[in-house]
């Protein structure tokens, strides 16, 4: 093998190295190129390249960012979790109702409770899927419907006056300019990256997505790993919900309806394979930024909501084509 590789001239070798680098960028980091392209387009627009606008962009993308990270944990293991859209509203709804109905629950306890509700929903999903060996898509479709019904039951008219402590994470700007949600989001991506790269759990998730049966035979505790992934997805959705409630200073029964489609768009744009085993947190961050930037640009242009959705549909289509192109690039690499 090495003898064969050594027959090329130096010039050939360096040009092929350049080609390999280009290929690597094209096959793994294309989303960042798209982000750059959008930023260039935006720079012609007055008001885009201002600190306030960029922070707004990130702030607006933070709830979705958490949802995408949550979906990533299950998607990389070749599972899907539709119910995170339900948890997104349900977890804060439980926290807020507890806070307003029971005198003993202060806002901090309510925040904790919210996250725990997310974890419990994930645990229930995970247990049903793993122990009863049922398809994750179908199970979470059912829990999604259940949760959305429960949200309407809990807060039929919504809740519009929330204590500042509960909305601090999602709604506060420090020094009048810096939204707390932005570092929280970035922290989430860093933690997720470390979990995927530097823990046995993260490596096992990727292994399961690639070849579940082989992992099982090799002695990986597949069931436990999957359950943890669903719990993490639930927790991420709950935190995303907290950020969203904080941003809006309120919650209503329809919060988050349809957001799952954007979550899929984000995960796919970020290079996460629908059938598992492949994807990266950095790609995910790029995808969340791209979605945030598109929304931001359209708002700046004053595009109306219906048209915005049309654009997103086309973006998702592009993402699908892109990911199949990436697959082909990757498989022809050898």
């Amino acid at each position: 093998m090495t003898a064969l590789a050594g027959t090329g001239t130096v010039a050939e070798a360096s040009s092929s190295r350049g080609r390999i680098l280009l290929r690597r960028i094209a096959s793994e980091h294309l989303i960042w190129l798209i982000f750059l392209l959008l930023a260039v387009i935006g720079s012609f627009l007055p008001g885009f390249l201002t600190l306030a606008n960029l922070l707004n962009l990130l702030w607006g993308a933070s709830p979705l960012g958490f949802m995408v990270v949550g979906m990533f944990f299950v998607m990389i293991a070749a599972r899907l979790d539709l119910s995170i859209e339900g948890t997104f509203a349900f977890a804060p709804a439980v926290g807020i109702v507890a806070m307003t109905e029971w005198p003993g629950v202060n806002p901090l306890v309510a925040l904790l409770l919210t996250v725990m509700v997310g974890a419990v929903v994930g645990l229930v999903n995970g247990l049903i899927i793993v122990k009863l060996k049922v398809n994750a898509f179908l199970v979470t479709l059912a829990t999604l419907l259940t949760l959305e019904g429960m949200v309407v039951f809990l807060i039929p008219e919504g809740v519009y006056h929330l204590p500042a402590e509960y909305t601090w994470l999602g709604g506060t700007r420090i020094f009048g300019q810096w939204p707390v949600a932005v570092p929280v989001l970035l922290l989430a991506f860093i933690v997720a990256h470390v979990v995927m790269k530097r823990t046995a759990f993260g490596r096992n998730l990727v292994g399961i997505g690639n070849n579940e049966e082989a992992c099982r035979i090799a002695g990986v505790n597949v069931n436990r790993t999957l359950i943890i992934a669903f719990v993490l997805a639930g927790i991420c959705a709950a935190i995303g919900g907290i950020l969203q409630v904080g941003r809006l200073f309120s919650i209503d029964a329809s919060m988050g309806n349809g957001v799952i489609l954007y979550v899929f768009a984000g995960a796919t744009l970020g290079g996460t394979a629908l059938n598992g085993g492949r994807g990266s947190i950095s790609g995910l961050l790029g995808a969340v930024l791209v979605i945030g930037t598109i929304t931001n640009l359209m708002n700046l242009y004053g595009v109306e909501t219906s048209v915005q959705q049309i654009v997103f549909g086309l973006v998702l289509l592009g993402a699908i084509l892109l990911s199949s192109l990436q697959d082909r690039l990757r498989t022809t690499q050898a």
Binding site: V206, N210, N211, E213, A214, I217, A218, G277, R278
Partner: peptide, 9 residues
């Protein structure tokens, strides 16, 4: 190939 190797790792 089916039961032991994790191909892309």
């Amino acid at each position: 190939e089916r039961l032991a190797t994790i191909h892309t790792l």
